[in-house]
Design a protein around this nucleic acid. Sequence first.
DNA 1: CCCCAGTCCTGCGGGC
DNA 2: TGCCCGCAGGACTGGG
Length: 285
Amino acid sequence: MPELPEVETMRRGILGIQGSRISAVERAPCRLKPILVRPRIDVLRRRVVGLRVLDVERIGKRVMLRLESGDGIVFEPRMTGLVLVADPPDEEHLRFRLALADGPIRQLWYWDRRGLGSVQLLSPLQLAELFSSGRIGPDALALSAEELRDRFSTSRREIKVALLDQRAIAGIGNLYASEILHVAAVHPGKLCHRITRQEWQTIHAAMIAVLNDAIRYEGSTLGDGTYRNALNRPGEYQKHHRVYDRAHQRCLTCCTAEVKRIVQGQRSTFYCPRCQPGRRSSRHK
DNA sequence: CCCCAGTCCTGCGGGC
DNA sequence: TGCCCGCAGGACTGGG
């Protein structure tokens, strides 16, 4: 499930389209239920064909091609979306194609197995609205320890649940929330307002370290093998996971306790009860 | 403010 | 061997 490191890897993988001119956009022929593309493909085509891509940006878990018109083509991969410049994993889940008239990359695909993602063209006004509406918080990699604490320290939510709130902080998903809290040695069920100043420092440092590490290894490709970088190669960070999806296996940090799986906000959380103490387990199931 | 359940969607794996 | 069901969860919505 593409989170900040995976989406950042996608962004880096398509940087070569900077400066290229868009020559065509189309929905891929696909038997499956069509993904969300906005506006309608013919309207979208009129607004982008012939324009150059000025920049490739990341907005939380989205990748955006900034065009010379100021519009942005925003890819939101959600669970299984991929932005590719070569060899998709298969043909039947291709959803959208963008062709470039010049430059090193002549074709960009959006591929999505489950189809929960989207491709949207947003005007400068719509982009401004996306940020001002409060739907998307500051990027996890651009937030200082003080800002992190300021945003969360009065909340009564559990820290793991709070980290997933994209309005509070953008980019962290289910996988990295568990990994970050493990490195920080903080119990995922700890309530934000009970977290000390020192612990916020530790959480912040762990967040930056884990996310940057994961970017260095080009993200995590889980057992289902879905995630791929822009060249359709898997990430390597799954080899460095300490707790995620390792329930009942020995904790790699203390080499003593077994990793536990609990459910918070209807999502799996993994942690080591020895390395991350501090909550009665009876509060969870 | 925050929580919870439901929705979208496909593929996979467990159970029978 | 095959079918059904539950599960995976990011973002969003509606009700409490």
